[in-house]
C-alpha cells in the first residue's frame, strides 16, 4: 500500500522535468521537420507551399556545406586532441610535489570561467591582430613576418582559442582522477624496476582511461555546437572557411531569413549529432554509474 502510494508520488515528482524536457525537445524538432519540407522565407510571406526534399537538396548543395562538415569535425578533433594530450601532461605536472599548488591550480583553471565572447575577442584583438597583436610583435622579434591569424589560418586560430578555454576542464577532471590512483601500486611497480614511462603506460594511463572518455563525451557535446567564438571573430569566413554546421544553419536562418533551408540544415545537424551520440554513449555509458 505504502509502496504503491510512494511510487505514485515519485512519478508525480519526476513528471514535470520529463514533460518539460519532452516538450522542449520534441515540439521544436517536429516544427523544424515541418519547416524543412516547406517553402518558408521570412522576408517574403507568400504562403508556405510543400517542397518535399527541395530544401535538403538546396542546403546540401550549398558550397559551404561540405566545408562546414569538415570544419565541425576538425574543430572538435583539434580541440579534443590538444586538451586531452596537454591535459594529461598538465594533470601529471600538477600532481607532483610543489610549493603553492593551490595558486597554480587556480591560475590553470581560470580560463574555463571566461565567457566565450570575451576570450574570443581578447585573442582576436590583443594576440592575433596582425598589427597590434602580441603574436605579431613576437614574430617581429624573431624577424618573421606577422601572420593575420584569423584571415590566413582561421580554423587553426579558432581551435587554439577554444582549446585554451577547455584545457582547464580536461586538466581538472584528469587531475581529480589521478589523485584517486593507488600509490601503492605505483610504488610496487617502481620496486620492480619499471621506469617512469612504463609506469605511465601500464598503470597511470589505464587508470585515466575512464576520465578521458568522460572528457571526450562532455567536450564533444559542447564543441559540436560551437558558435559564439566563430560569431565574434571570423563570422565564419573568409568565405565559409571557418563555418561549422551550427554557424551555417544560423546564417541560413538569421542572415538569409530562409527558414526552410535552415530547418533542413538543423535536421541534418540533429541526425549527425545523434549518430555521434549513439557511438559515444555506447563508449561512455558504462563509465556512468547509475
Amino acid at each position: 500500500m505504502a509502496s504503491i502510494h510512494s511510487r505514485a508520488t515519485a512519478r508525480l515528482m519526476l513528471s514535470p522535468a520529463v514533460i518539460l524536457l519532452l516538450v522542449w525537445m520534441a515540439a521544436p524538432l517536429v516544427m523544424t521537420l515541418w519547416y524543412s519540407l516547406h517553402d518558408y522565407q521570412l522576408l517574403m510571406p507568400r504562403g508556405n507551399p510543400f517542397l518535399g526534399l527541395e530544401n535538403y537538396a538546396y542546403f546540401l548543395s550549398d558550397p559551404g556545406f561540405l566545408q562546414s562538415i569538415g570544419n565541425t569535425f576538425m574543430l572538435v578533433m583539434g580541440v579534443l586532441l590538444i586538451t586531452v594530450v596537454c591535459g594529461v601532461g598538465l594533470a601529471l605536472l600538477l600532481d607532483q610535489p610543489m610549493y603553492g599548488r593551490g595558486v597554480v591550480r587556480v591560475l590553470v583553471v581560470a580560463p574555463f570561467f571566461v565567457m566565450p565572447t570575451v576570450s574570443a575577442l581578447v585573442w582576436k584583438n590583443m594576440f592575433m591582430n596582425p598589427v597590434n597583436g602580441l603574436f605579431a610583435w613576437m614574430a617581429q622579434m624573431f624577424g618573421a613576418d606577422a601572420i593575420d591569424w584569423l584571415a590566413q589560418v582561421p580554423l587553426l586560430s579558432l581551435t587554439l582559442i577554444v582549446a585554451w578555454g577547455w584545457l582547464p576542464f580536461a586538466t581538472l577532471i584528469l587531475l581529480t582522477a589521478l589523485q584517486s590512483l593507488d600509490t601503492e601500486q605505483k610504488e610496487a611497480a617502481e620496486m620492480d624496476g619499471a621506469n617512469a614511462w612504463a609506469r605511465f603506460l601500464h598503470i597511470t594511463l589505464p587508470h585515466l582511461s575512464r576520465a578521458i572518455t568522460v572528457v571526450i563525451l562532455i567536450q564533444t557535446i559542447f564543441l559540436l555546437s560551437l558558435f559564439a567564438e566563430i560569431f565574434v571573430t571570423t563570422n565564419g569566413g573568409p568565405g565559409t572557411q571557418s563555418s561549422n554546421l551550427a554557424y551555417l544553419v544560423y546564417s541560413h536562418a538569421l542572415l538569409r531569413f530562409d527558414v526552410g533551408s535552415a530547418s533542413a540544415g538543423g535536421v541534418i545537424a540533429v541526425v549527425a549529432a545523434n549518430i555521434l551520440a549513439l557511438l559515444l554513449m555506447r563508449l561512455v555509458g558504462k563509465s556512468l554509474e547509475v
Binding site: A246, A253, A262, A269
Partner: peptide, 8 residues
C-alpha cells in the same frame, strides 16, 4: 544541437 531547434 541547439541549431536543430533554433528556427522554431
Amino acid at each position: 544541437p541547439a541549431v536543430g531547434v533554433l528556427v522554431p
